[in-house]
Amino acid sequence: MQKAIWTFLFALGIIFFNWPFMSIFKDTMVPYLFLVWAIFIIILFSVTTQIKRDDRGG
C-alpha cells in the first residue's frame, strides 16, 4: 500500500513539475513552482508520519 502511495506521489510530482501542466502557469511561473514545491514537501511530511515501522523496502 505504502509503495503505491509513494509511487503515486512521485508520478504526481512529475506531472506537476513538467510540461504540459507547467505551461498553464506560464505567466506566474515562479510563484507556481515555489508554491507547488512547498505543497509537495508538506505532503511528503504528512505521508512520512503515516509510515509503519515494520514495512520492508521495495
Binding site: 509513494w6 509511487t7 512521485f10 510530482g13 513539475f17 511528503l44 512520512t48 514495512d55 523496502g57 521495495g58
Partner: peptide, 11 residues
C-alpha cells in the same frame, strides 16, 4: 531530488 525523495522509502 525533491521528487526522488518521494521514492526514497522504496528505493
Amino acid at each position: 531530488p525533491t521528487l526522488m525523495a518521494s521514492l526514497w522509502w522504496i528505493i
